[in-house]
Design a protein around this nucleic acid. Structure first.
Length: 216
DNA sequence: ATCCCGAGGG
DNA sequence: CCCTCTGGAT
């Protein structure tokens, strides 16, 4: 257990250094042509692989490329188009309502502001941080999804379960200039090596400073 | 059976 | 804090 702040900072430096070594070219795996499309793709990515999101958004963005287009789309049509991403009724309702809100309040543009983004239907801190970081290059927070939460806990950077608390603790120990790439790289590592079910500890370059030394 | 780049509501 | 929404992948 790493409890001391200085100790967690030291651990964070090791993690950041190894992430840069292993995942130098971190990039968002979601396909998009605009901040609006990234926002929609990120809403759809809940409990769903990015590969499937990209399959769905290919047709979705061809038909409704902008907030103005999606705001006037029939919700039933949206439900059918996003059906295979799961939670499809909520997601269809949210992407429709969020598009309408963007048209009403921001002339169809995506605001570059965390508080305004989080007010949009279906947009929480995770989605807002993805859009601000990846579409606008603004490190307004650290994206904490299921991968980032799991890996930072395994690596001893936090012991919190709540995503907001995890983000707070990470922001204490990870330099701000690293925030955007930090999450992308952890997510890549979480998918490729340190996955939830059967982590490949024998192939993991982080093992030498991982407190788990093999999770069950 | 269990997890996937969550959010909203109770 | 908990629960619900949901299909796909393994």
């Amino acid at each position: 257990m790493i409890e001391d702040l200085a100790e967690r900072k030291a651990q964070a430096r090791r993690v950041v250094r190894q992430l840069k070594k292993d995942y130098a070219d971190a990039e968002c795996a979601l396909n998009f042509d605009s901040p609006f499309q990234l926002l929609i793709a990120t809403i759809l990515s809940a409990q769903c692989t990015d590969v499937r999101v990209n399959i769905v958004t290919k047709d979705l963005f061809a038909k409704y490329p902008t907030a103005h287009d999606m705001a006037v789309a029939p919700v039933k049509t949206l439900e059918k188009m996003v059906q295979t991403t799961g939670f499809f009724r909520n997601k269809a309702k949210n992407i429709h309502a969020a598009s309408q809100a963007l048209v009403d309040d921001y002339d169809g543009e995506v605001p570059q502001d965390l508080a305004k983004l989080v007010e949009l239907p279906g947009v929480g801190r995770k989605t807002a941080n993805v859009v601000l970081g990846t579409a606008f290059g603004i490190p307004s927070g650290i994206v904490v999804d299921t991968h980032v939460g799991r890996l930072t806990r395994r690596l001893g950077l936090t012991e919190k379960a709540d995503a907001v608390k995890v983000e707070e603790e990470l922001m204490e120990v990870v330099p701000k200039k690293e925030w955007i790439d930090f999450s992308h790289r952890l997510i890549h590592h979480g998918r490729a090596v340190c996955n939830a079910r059967k982590p490949k500890c024998e192939a993991c370059h982080f093992l030498k400073f991982c407190p788990q030394e093999g999770v069950s």
